[in-house]
Design a protein around this nucleic acid. Structure first.
Lengths: 147, 147
DNA sequence: CTTGTTTTTTGGAGTATCCCCAATTTTAAA
DNA sequence: TTTAAAATTGGGGATACTCCAAAAAACAAG
């Protein structure tokens, strides 16, 4: 695994991908556009990039859905957000603020770091903004493995 | 105080400003360029922007030094880095990794959040990467003040 | 005090990531 | 089948980075 694993997507793309994941199924351009208050044409362009990277399948004029890869990655993105939010809450922030701060910086935090924080916190199931599910990687990591 | 206080500078500018602060006195373009492994012309341009924002004074062909504002801000930047690094160490990361992760995302963390984390951690004097000094704002914040 | 080396700056250009508007295309409902 | 809504395309702009080549300034040595 590359050391910078988890930094492939920009902050904005992370937000869009999480939104698609959480909405579920086929998501329309207009849904994303209004959720983030940006012009639909901006969404179309970003979706094209996410599709090129094979995170989503885009049927023009109909909407997008996650690929298998996209879904796995989105699971990580959501977990990362929740682990970081929880860490902030456990370090003195209000849930709402924790969530906002995390959204701003989470795209810059590696998977390795998230797994270690997760392990340190005892693989919690509940965050400030939703449930946390744990993958194999995460459950293994953190004890002796400094890689 | 604006809610987004602390987000004025890009990640790169934060790094440059911290470097100028930590080097101290008058810093030359070439010093910054070699420290970050970028072309000197890139530094000249960024310094022009930092000078326009009045964080530094730039005497062409001679170097830059911090303004009063720049120095105060740099103190905050260094403290933010150290508080976040320390939080990561206290949440399971190795000091080196904590420092690297923090450098990547710190530019997106508000002063408000830093003050609360700092308060929560008991205004520590020592981080993974240096001493921490505390300002008035920080010592006041966090108890009841949710602003 | 002038030549030659080093440092810095200027000007030009490219990439990436955002964003919006206007016009066109497609879909879907009346 | 006409028409309104949704989506896309094409064009353009902003910010934040980056580098290279050429000009300018500084400085040291002779």
């Amino acid at each position: 695994m590359e050391p910078e694993c988890g930094l492939a997507l920009s902050a904005r793309k992370v937000e869009y991908l999480k939104f698609i994941f959480e909405t579920g199924g086929t998501v329309r351009t207009s849904e994303i556009a209004s959720a983030f208050n940006v012009d639909p044409s901006t969404i179309t362009k970003t979706l094209a990039e996410l599709a090129a990277a094979e995170y989503i399948r885009h049927v023009p004029y109909h909407g997008v859905c996650l690929t298998k890869t996209g879904e796995q990655h989105a699971e990580f993105l959501v977990k990362r957000h929740r682990i970081l939010s929880l860490m902030l809450v456990r370090n003195g922030l209000l849930p709402r603020d924790a969530c906002n701060e995390a959204s701003r910086f989470e795209s810059q935090v590696t998977k390795k770091a998230v797994d270690r924080i997760c392990h340190f916190m005892g693989h919690p199931r509940q965050s400030a903004c939703g449930e946390i599910t744990h993958d194999e990687d995460c459950l293994e990591r953190g004890r002796g493995t400094q890689s």
